[in-house]
Each structure stands twice: as structure tokens, then as C-alpha cells.
Amino acid sequence: MRSLKYLGRLLKELGQYAWQNKAWWLIPLVLILLAFGILMGVTQTTLPFIYTMF
């Protein structure tokens, strides 16, 4: 929950930055990077339970 709150804040501020500085390229790049980040994060957190998939 707490992570989601701060994710929302980060996305909002990145959007504001892009708007203010007309750095539109930042939006798709950040979304891709965040998606990668979440994928890597999820993989790394679930890996310790991988033995249950044997």
C-alpha cells in the first residue's frame, strides 16, 4: 500500500517535470523502466519460493 502511495507520487512528479520542461520523451521511457523494475522486483521477491514449483 505504502509503495503504491509513493509510486503515485513519483509518477505525478515525473509527469509535472515532463510538462514543465516539455520533456515528453520522459513519459514513455519512465513507464517502460518502471514496468521493467516491477518485473525484476517481482521476479526477485518470488524467487525464494521457487522450490515450491519443483
Binding site: 526477485q44 521477491t45 524467487l47
Partner: peptide, 9 residues
Amino acid sequence: FNRLAHGVG
């Protein structure tokens, strides 16, 4: 498992 997770990461 953490080492494995790190490698996969």
C-alpha cells in the same frame, strides 16, 4: 535463494 534471485535479476 537470494544469490539465485540476484543472478536472475
